[in-house]
Design a protein around this nucleic acid. Structure first.
Lengths: 199, 199
DNA sequence: TATCTTACGTACCCATAGTTACGAAATAAA
DNA sequence: TTTATTTCGTAACTATGGGTACGTAAGATA
């Protein structure tokens, strides 16, 4: 598994460490308020080192977003795609969204939501990735609702695309509340009421 | 009405013009992505002139927020306090939120919502004003719901504080959708479904 | 040992943004 | 006309942040 010894000076930059640090900072602080210099201080990496590894600020953010997708978005997709009742999925969504972040050692709020509101301040690579992810999320919601309707578990008249926007908006609202310091129990209450609507 | 002639060089800085320009920029672009220098270019005012008039970046933002309150938040409070049925008020909220901004010559989205998400990047004066306004908004929703319940127009079991957060979240979501380019008709659909929940 | 290759990191460049020092200009009062 | 007063705006200062030039270190190969 070890890569054969290559020529030249061996690389010492810890890619994963830098990436995880960047992710946590972007997530916990804000994707547009954490400088490369800050990441350097926190990881001990040098600026040129980070640029060699990620190409640019945009590249680092993009890589962090990709990590975030694996970490926080895939579980969401999993809930929506899992073979379970509409009601069970909604409950799982509430539970997932209002997890105790502190206990999990993970920041509150949602990096993806933050990047969407900061869309205009992101580099092209990250920005376009955000757009794609948005599509992916809305699509996942839509397929989920479609399935629920076809199974007769959801008889709401709302069009599927509007319903997808609706669920996405609820999630966004929950993340914003979390950032504003509303406690998770209250957020869960709000979400349950919001999700009760469509059934 | 004209102020008596005062000593010293007469003031030439057009306060209202600067304030309105700043408001529209903060609103249309983002409160944290418009520099004083930009406002200067747009209004012809000089930097020291603006500092003399508003004290600081924080002061200008705070003044702009105050203007925004009069322009966009008071009408909201008016809807909530007006003597009308719960259903009528909800309809009015939807209509107000999804007005054709272009036709009104006003940016899409909501400066107050934007400032809330940017809370950490605001100066102390603006930041604290934002906090106060948030209280004011949540309070207005709460009184409104309380009244509706006491009138028997709303029988939802949701606690009043959670309901206030709920409506606030819906509004925030709508503003975000508007910024992301979702058309007002779709937003109205989503909002109507969201508001249908509590009745 | 000499050379080629690759990565390292200090120190810098440049642009932007908030802020202000300060001399000039304009007006009323003396 | 001189003086006191008030505002004006150019040109700076300082800090920050994205990005990089370049000489050096560390290993493989010859």
């Amino acid at each position: 598994m070890e890569k054969a010894e290559k020529r030249g000076r061996p690389k010492t930059l810890e890619r994963e460490h830098v990436l995880q640090t960047a992710l946590m900072q972007y997530w916990g602080v804000s994707p547009t308020d954490v400088s490369i210099g800050e990441i350097c201080k926190l990881t001990g990496a040098s600026k040129p080192g980070i640029y060699r590894e990620f190409g640019s600020d945009d590249g680092l953010k993009c890589a962090a977003l990709e990590s975030y997708r694996s970490l926080a978005l895939l579980p969401l997709f999993d809930i929506l795609k899992r073979d379970q009742s509409f009601a069970a999925a909604k409950a799982a969504l509430v539970a997932f969204t209002t997890q105790d972040r502190e206990a999990l050692g993970v920041p509150s709020g949602c990096l993806f939501v933050a990047m969407r509101t900061q869309r205009g301040n992101l580099g092209s690579a990250t920005g376009e990735r955000v757009d794609l992810l948005r599509e992916e999320v809305l699509d996942a919601y839509m397929v989920w609702i479609e399935t629920a309707k076809s199974r007769g578990e959801c008889s709401a008249q709302i069009p599927n695309d509007a319903a997808a926007l609706y669920f996405d908006a609820q999630n966004g609202g929950a993340m914003r509340m979390q950032k504003e310091g509303v406690d998770n129990a209250t957020i869960a209450t709000v979400l349950r009421y919001a999700f009760k609507m469509i059934e």
